[in-house]
Simulated scan of single mutants.
Amino acid sequence: MNSVDLSKDAARKRAFAARKAVYRTGLDAAAQAHLRAALAEFGAVTVSGYLPIRTEIDPVPVMATLPGPVCVPVIPGAGQPLDFHLWTPDAILVDGPFGAKVPAEGIAVTPRVLIVPMLAFDKRGYRLGYGGGFYDRTLARLRAAGPVTALGFAFDAQEADEVPIDAYDQPLDGIVTESGLRRF
């Protein structure tokens, strides 16, 4: 394991603890209001959200009210970019990789705005995920094809002084927390 990988592992442990400490403290509602406002500027474009796992902040109440198509990520396999399948609040869900639920009916769509989960983020706009590199590969692929906006969604407590990064790590365009939207 190289030094960046070791740094990321240590940062993940700290980030899990920080996120767990604020999970279910009622901060979701304020963050969701800011997320709804941030997404309003995009109109009815296709937005990718996510179905939260573990102690992730919950974007589903916002996703359910968006005017355009909404999709969620689906992991096609290790080392690959994410696919996105159409989601509705009443979609039948099945178990997907890593404990995430995915729509049973796999209608593929391409998002123009992504709500991105994370363990930690920094003031440069970098995020720390679970280590699979799925969002980094996906953002690189989507950005090469045209304009796309990636908005991280997290609690303020998940901010780190600096997230360790590699050359392949993709920055976010903004982060939404209970304090509001920050653009990078």
Rank of each mutant, 00 (worst) to 15 (best):
2 N>M: 07
5 D>M: 08
7 S>T: 02
10 A>V: 14
11 A>V: 04
12 R>Q: 00
16 F>H: 14
18 A>F: 05
18 A>N: 11
19 R>S: 02
19 R>T: 03
19 R>M: 06
23 Y>W: 08
23 Y>A: 07
23 Y>G: 03
24 R>E: 14
26 G>M: 05
31 A>I: 02
32 Q>T: 11
35 L>I: 11
36 R>C: 10
37 A>S: 12
39 L>E: 09
41 E>L: 11
43 G>L: 11
45 V>W: 08
47 V>Q: 04
49 G>P: 08
50 Y>K: 04
52 P>Y: 09
57 I>P: 00
58 D>L: 08
60 V>N: 00
60 V>C: 09
61 P>K: 10
62 V>R: 06
64 A>N: 08
65 T>Y: 02
66 L>D: 05
66 L>P: 03
68 G>H: 13
69 P>D: 13
73 P>C: 09
74 V>F: 15
75 I>A: 12
75 I>Y: 12
76 P>K: 10
77 G>K: 12
79 G>V: 04
81 P>G: 13
83 D>T: 07
83 D>G: 03
83 D>A: 09
87 W>L: 11
88 T>Y: 14
89 P>D: 03
90 D>M: 08
90 D>E: 15
91 A>W: 08
93 L>I: 06
94 V>A: 12
94 V>S: 05
96 G>T: 10
96 G>M: 14
96 G>H: 11
98 F>M: 14
99 G>E: 11
99 G>T: 12
100 A>F: 06
101 K>P: 01
102 V>Y: 07
105 E>F: 13
107 I>C: 06
109 V>C: 14
111 P>I: 01
111 P>N: 02
113 V>L: 10
116 V>E: 01
117 P>N: 02
117 P>K: 01
118 M>C: 11
119 L>C: 07
119 L>N: 06
120 A>M: 04
120 A>S: 12
122 D>H: 10
125 G>K: 00
126 Y>I: 03
129 G>H: 06
131 G>T: 03
133 G>R: 09
133 G>Q: 04
134 F>P: 04
135 Y>W: 14
136 D>Y: 09
138 T>I: 07
139 L>N: 08
139 L>M: 15
140 A>T: 15
142 L>S: 09
144 A>H: 07
146 G>H: 00
147 P>C: 10
147 P>D: 15
149 T>K: 00
149 T>E: 00
150 A>S: 09
150 A>D: 08
153 F>K: 06
154 A>Y: 05
160 A>T: 08
160 A>K: 04
161 D>M: 13
163 V>P: 05
163 V>Q: 03
165 I>R: 13
169 D>Y: 06
170 Q>E: 06
175 I>W: 01
177 T>F: 06
180 G>L: 11
182 R>P: 07
183 R>H: 04
183 R>N: 07
